[in-house]
Computed example of a mutant assay.
Amino acid sequence: MAIKNWPKDEQPREKLLARGPAALSDAELLALFLGTGCKGLDVMENARLLLKDHGPLRRLLDLSAPKLKKLPGLGPARACELVAALELADRHLRAQLDRGESMREPQSAIRYFKQRLRGRPHEVFAALFLDTRNRTLAFEELFTGTIDAATIYPREVVRRALLHNAAAVIVSHNHPSGSAEPSAADRQITRHLQEALNLVGVRLLDHVVVGEGTPVSMAERGWLEPALTFRG
């Protein structure tokens, strides 16, 4: 059934306006972007087919513009529009962490790390260095490893924190295998990092593990002391 024949409150555009974008499924969001179907498929059927053959959504959206343009219902124009929209979203997220604006809640950093690290083929350990008001001083990818491990040196994290004159640090690494659940080794290195940073008066606010789905915040799990706090 064509979308125009759906009940009004179930049509993607009307649902988004009434309930916000979070109320839409991946297929509905993709259909809303595509606008029209192709080759005998209505737009929802086309969206579902794209997700079935090239999904899940993250894997589909990670494709480059030259690959996207070859997919049914896209073509060069829509492929470029989609990549441009994703880049705008990425820049908007980065702008929220620019120096001059204090992070008001920990989810800002979690979203940022998720955007930067998810989908990387190897483990990457990164850090956000913050001033006394939790404004971003710098973002750095400090260590890169293999598909399932990265060697982390607390001394180097301390050195970079002092170089940036940071008052606090939030660190993160990704699990290319998919599961964001922290390992025993992840928790151990977090303790070592916190001890090393405490010696120079720098707070470790959180260690975020990025995988498929929702990232895991060790601060939210209660595995860091003192607990994660944000100052306005």
Results as ranks from 00 to 15, higher is better:
Ala126Glu: 04
Ser25Cys: 07
Thr146Cys: 01
Gln96Val: 11
Leu34Ser: 02
Leu224Phe: 07
Leu162Glu: 13
Met103Trp: 09
Glu105Ser: 13
Gln11Lys: 13
Ser108Gln: 15
Pro72Cys: 05
Ile170Gly: 07
Val83Phe: 03
Pro154Cys: 05
Leu29Lys: 14
Pro121Asn: 12
Leu60Cys: 02
Pro56Lys: 03
Val200Ala: 12
Ala126Leu: 11
Ala18Arg: 15
Val83His: 04
Asn5Lys: 13
Ala138Lys: 14
Gln11Tyr: 10
Pro106Met: 02
Glu10Ser: 10
Ile110Trp: 06
Asn5Ala: 10
Thr146Lys: 06
Ala18Ile: 01
Ala127Trp: 01
Arg91Asn: 13
Phe230Asn: 04
Val216Lys: 08
Lys114Met: 11
Pro106Gln: 03
Thr146Ile: 00
Gln188Gly: 04
His173Met: 02
Pro106Trp: 00
Gly75Glu: 06
Ile3Pro: 01
Phe139Gly: 04
Leu142His: 11
Ala127Ser: 13
Ala185Tyr: 02
Pro76Ser: 05
Ala219Ile: 04
Arg135Lys: 11
Ala149Asn: 07
Glu28Asp: 08
Ala23Met: 08
Arg203Asn: 07
Leu86Ala: 08
Leu29Thr: 04
Lys114Gly: 15
Gln188Thr: 12
Glu45Ala: 14
Glu123Trp: 02
Leu34Arg: 07
Leu93His: 06
Cys80Phe: 06
Val171Cys: 15
Ser172Phe: 09
Ala27Trp: 08
Ala168Asn: 01
Leu51Phe: 08
Asp42Trp: 12
Asn165His: 15
